[in-house]
Computed example of a mutant assay.
Amino acid sequence: MSESDDAKTMAGGLEADPADRNADVTAAAFRLMSRLKMRHLSMLKNIERHGSLTRVARETGISQPAVTKTLAEIESLFGAPLFHRSGRGLKPTEMGELAMLRASHMLQELDHWASEMEAVRKGYRARLLIGAVPYVPGSLLTQAIMALRERHNIIIVIRQATTDHLVQALCDHELDCVLGRASAVAGRDNLWHEVLYAQRPVLVGHSKLLKRLEGRRLDWRSLASMNWILPSPATPIGARIVELFTQAQVPVPVPIIETYSIDVMHGVLSKDESVISMVPEDIAVEMSRRGGIGILPWKMDWELPPLSLIRRVRDVPLDAEEKFAGILRELCG
């Protein structure tokens, strides 16, 4: 044995040969592929949902012995306990947490697969699940999805929410891609983003309010006394508004309505001249075209985090997703 081998032995034994590690991984993968079944995935999902074998049996209509046997099969596949048993139910081990997460992703992907197959059966090329924050201009989204359908015969499902919720849905395999703020991707190795364009914020209000404030200088103290519609402080624009009032050393206004809904904002702003809000400029332009509101003549010297296309890291990108990305580049370039 060499001196280096002696040192390894003294440190706690010989290091595993990489070939042995690869063989172990291959064997584990083969075991899963040959023995893992849909009922195992469903059982893991049910355990995650209900927290105990008794509740799983009651809610699914499966006998308790059958539930216990299925869990034993699953743990045999992984060669280790996946849950700690107690009178209060099941608490997942670290491996159990991973197993439930992977099972959830696999079931979600199978559901998408079934929906895509149904779309193809009906004559479409594919089905794409898109998440979009409310501050994506309707004109951009409309042009993109129309081009996707007309050029490539792809049908689209759109979900709207804040970036943090959409990014979590993307990580959970509930969405294929997200139009949102790139800042939400930080620290997530399983996601990547492509910047589309930057958005500049503006103040919006009733047309009569616009006339009253015309010619005045931007005064955060006066603005703080007004009625505001604001998104949550957890959103990029909400956080920035809090920061602006704090920097101006004036109290941060408590919004009369906290919402991200463009329809609600427009409805209230167009009827109440005492209310004000802040939105991206391209959204403000679309709102003003509906009538009743306008953009206040004060320019902000900052930009929101860029609007980006956020995607999961994949070995092989989805063709429909690539087509969508190409159309967005055309429209935003």
Score class of each variant (00 low, 15 high):
Leu223Met: 14
Ala198Lys: 10
Ser261Trp: 04
Pro231Met: 05
Arg216Phe: 02
Gln160Leu: 06
Leu269His: 09
Ile262Gly: 02
His152Trp: 15
Arg200Lys: 13
Arg188Met: 08
Lys208Thr: 14
Ala182Asp: 02
Leu170Ser: 01
Gln249Met: 09
Leu209Arg: 09
Ser261Gly: 00
Asp164Gln: 12
Glu214Ile: 00
Glu243Met: 09
Tyr260Ile: 09
Ser225Glu: 14
Glu258Gly: 06
Gln160Val: 10
Gln160Phe: 12
Leu179Trp: 13
Phe245Asp: 11
Lys208Gly: 05
Ser222Leu: 11
Ser270Met: 02
Trp228Asp: 03
Asp172Leu: 11
Thr235Asp: 06
Lys271Ser: 12
His152Gln: 04
Ala239Arg: 14
Leu218Phe: 14
Asn153Gly: 02
Val250Ala: 08
Asp176Met: 03
Pro231Ser: 10
Arg221Trp: 00
Leu210Gly: 03
Leu213Gln: 12
Ile262Leu: 12
His206Thr: 02
Ala186Ile: 09
Ile262Ser: 05
Glu243Trp: 10
Pro253Asp: 06
Asp176Tyr: 08
Pro253Glu: 07
Leu213Thr: 13
Pro253His: 11
Ile257Phe: 03
Arg181Ala: 07
Trp228Ile: 00
Pro236Leu: 04
Thr235Leu: 08
Pro233Glu: 11
Tyr260Ser: 13
Leu230Cys: 13
Arg200Val: 09
Thr246Met: 07
Pro231Lys: 07
Leu191Ile: 09
Ala198Glu: 10
Met265Arg: 06
Gly187Leu: 09
Leu170Ile: 07
Tyr197Gln: 07
Phe245His: 12
Leu179Tyr: 14
Gly187Trp: 02
His165Trp: 11
Pro236Cys: 06
Arg217Cys: 02
Trp220Glu: 04
Gly187Glu: 03
Glu214Gln: 14
Tyr197Val: 00
Gly180Ile: 02
Ala161Asp: 15
Thr235Met: 04
Pro255Trp: 10
Val264Asn: 00
Glu194Cys: 06
Ala169Pro: 04
Leu175His: 04
Leu175Arg: 02
Glu243Thr: 14
Met265Glu: 05
Val157Tyr: 05
Leu196Arg: 03
Pro201Met: 07
Glu258Arg: 13
Val167Leu: 05
Thr163Pro: 01
His173Cys: 10
Glu214Lys: 13
Pro231Ile: 06
Asn227Ile: 00
Pro251Lys: 11
Ile262Asn: 12
Val268Lys: 01
Pro236Glu: 07
Ile257Leu: 08
His152Arg: 12
Ala186Gln: 04
Glu174Arg: 10
Leu203Cys: 05
Ala161Arg: 04
Val268Thr: 03
Tyr197Cys: 01
Lys208Glu: 15
Ile154Gln: 04
His206Arg: 04
Ala182Arg: 05
Gln168Ile: 06
His206Cys: 01
Asn227Thr: 08
Val250Trp: 12
Glu243Arg: 15
Ile237Pro: 01
Arg151Lys: 15
Ala182Ser: 07
Val185Lys: 06
Leu170Val: 07
Ile158His: 06
Ala184Lys: 05
Glu243Tyr: 13
Thr259Ala: 04
Asp263Glu: 15
Lys211Tyr: 03
Leu269Trp: 12
Ile241Asn: 09
Asp263Gly: 04
Pro233Ser: 14
Arg216Asp: 08
Ile158Ser: 05
Val185Leu: 04
Leu269Ser: 03
Pro236Phe: 11
Ser183Gln: 09
Val202Met: 06
Asp176Pro: 08
Thr259Tyr: 02
Thr259His: 05
Val167Trp: 10
Ile155Gly: 02
Leu166Arg: 05
Pro233Trp: 13
